[in-house]
Design a protein around this nucleic acid. Structure first.
Lengths: 342, 342
DNA sequence: TTGAAAGCGCTAACAT
DNA sequence: ATGTTAGCGCTTTCAA
């Protein structure tokens, strides 16, 4: 014996038909009220609203969308790992833009798995998201070509797509690194160690290219102190640092291709009480806490996410415009704590 | 003149009807093939698959779901701020569980706005998500009562709901803080400063209660060195620290209610070259980089997200079981770098 | 094993 | 200003 107002079948969600019946009006009138159409007599609208409240009606947006063929008010974001602050910041920025368009964000992580990336994209297409933002991990995104041709807005972030044409928002990896290496050169360094991880990664290739550019400008033999590590463990970066420092002509400055490598280098240098000049790509929240000075290449991750989302909505309005290619600028900033006054 | 296989209306997405026509079979046969129903003659299935490939057919999952009334294979996660590592870690862990159920996660940030929290929940309900995970910011979640009664799985994380009954996954704030304060007491500290921010926050109230418990156990007058700050700026935490240290009986140890407060305290102590014993709630990735030793209360954020998502799917299977209340345990860990050997 | 018809909950087009 | 009818793209009866 419940005193709750119950529909014909408790447990079933009330539909517009139920509301119409309860309010003694037609289904269409309920629809009008639900959509805020003004041409409804006030007393009828009132009755409908009462019935809605009594039944606990909630419009089924899935059904509403089906017939209208309009948008699902959903965009998909495929990144590598949501737990990584780089990507979660992007997601937050994209969500903030989506909010302005009353759109929700479905975020999925590919986990550096190209097969999964493809599955996720296709799944999101089957869900009829209004657009996609993809941080690609595979080296073939041709599976998206058909979707893009059909008008699905797709924006690639961090790395460009292969095998299809789409909007991109990239970080200026090359210029950032070149500027940083130039700084080291200006300080008088001639032996500059460069540590990257796998060059399968577009961003890492760009950074390496930027470093090479700066070294070539200065007439310095490139590749001399390049060292590539193939793992995610900072420890391996430490080993690379160690090997360089133990060589016959050790570098006087080190460039680390990302913040993970930097942490490994910092640890190794601390162990050795070595004061080799440090520089790295990627700024991060706690860089200022690093126990030694480091110059890093920073960029505004939020801008990356914001631009990507804005491009989606832009393309939603004008589907057949030429692909846009945005580049997020970088800056140099000194982090880490100053050396103890001896 | 395109050589692309084009449906009747290029730009329109091909439907099962188009595929059926192209394959010379009925709509239902296409549906069977699309769903992997085995009772289809091999050659027919083959023809259907060919037609699908040629037309670039992709099932519309929105429509599929509408009739079957089944799940949308989507769950909603409402947190305070996706850019915050605490929440993005939760989101990533929840997404990992969802993946096992072929479910996607819609993540939305309320931004500490109770009105928006409510709007987001209702919007996600209208989208017919299969379940909700909510980190509440408002102090009234009664708006979810009707949904929960209808069988919508809802799990609250970090703080319990008010005004409705639901599963919860909370951190053991009270025990964690009590253990930490006990540690300080065991070290001989008697004057312990406690800095919290607004006590509107459930977690902060719990932490304060845990601190009070430990102090009372030790027969120490509580509230003596309690100080509450009302802002997000670490600077204000620094001011609170300063005021305590400048008092006639300064504390010999400080407990910071969260990591933001801790950072403010660290800065202030560094400015003063003060070596007051530091302790705090919240472990965080770079805590080990802090320039002075700190004992912190840690917990596994991933577990929080994982349990929450598992509860959603559990409740999806058995809708009317009693609400579960999980508590994520805490641990003490020493972070920060040892003091210089003077 | 295959298909025709009905219908999910809603909106669009057309009356009235 | 209101209602009627059709239909979104699919799944679900139920027949054949």
């Amino acid at each position: 014996m419940t005193d709750q107002a119950a529909g014909p079948d408790p447990g079933r969600r009330p539909t517009m038909v139920d509301v119409a019946q309860a309010a003694g009006v037609s289904l269409k009138t309920v629809s009008r009220v639900a959509n805020g159409v003004p041409t409804v007599r006030a007393d009828l609208a009132e009755r409908v609203r009462d019935a809605m409240a009594e039944l606990g009606f909630q419009r089924n947006n899935v059904a509403a969308n089906l017939r209208s063929g309009r948008t699902t008010a959903t965009i998909g974001l495929i990144i590598l790992d949501l737990a990584n602050p780089f990507y979660s910041t992007i997601a937050a920025a994209a969500a903030a833009v989506a909010e302005r368009f009353d759109t929700q964000l479905i975020t999925a992580s590919s986990g550096w798995d190209a097969v999964r990336e493809r599955e996720l994209v296709l799944d999101l297409c089957e869900r009829r998201v209004d657009g996609l933002i993809v941080a690609p991990t595979g080296d073939d995104q041709s599976y998206l070509g058909a979707e893009i041709a059909r008008g699905m807005p797709a924006v690639f972030i961090d790395s460009p797509p292969s095998g299809c044409l789409a909007d991109t928002v990239l970080i200026d990896n090359r210029t950032g690194t070149r500027d940083l290496i130039r700084r080291l050169l200006a300080e008088g360094h001639r032996e500059i160690g460069v540590i990257t991880d796998s060059l399968n990664d577009f961003t890492m290739r760009e950074r390496l290219a930027g470093a090479a550019e700066a070294l070539e400008e200065a007439g310095i033999e490139t590749g001399r102190h390049f060292r590539r590590i193939y793992s995610d463990r900072p420890h391996d970066a430490g080993d690379a640092v160690g090997a360089m420092l133990d060589s016959s002509e050790p570098p006087t400055a080190l460039f680390c291709g990302n913040n993970r490598i930097l942490l490994g280098a910092v640890e190794e240098l601390a162990r050795r009480r070595d004061r080799t000049r440090l520089a790295a790509f990627d700024d991060f929240e706690f860089a200022k806490l690093l126990p030694r000075p480091v110059t890093v290449v920073g960029y505004d991750t939020r801008t990356l996410g914001r631009l990507a989302a804005e491009l989606v909505f832009q393309r939603l309005r004008r589907p057949r415009s030429a692909p846009a290619n945005y580049v997020v600028p970088t800056y140099l900033v000194d982090r880490g704590m100053a050396a103890d006054p001896a």
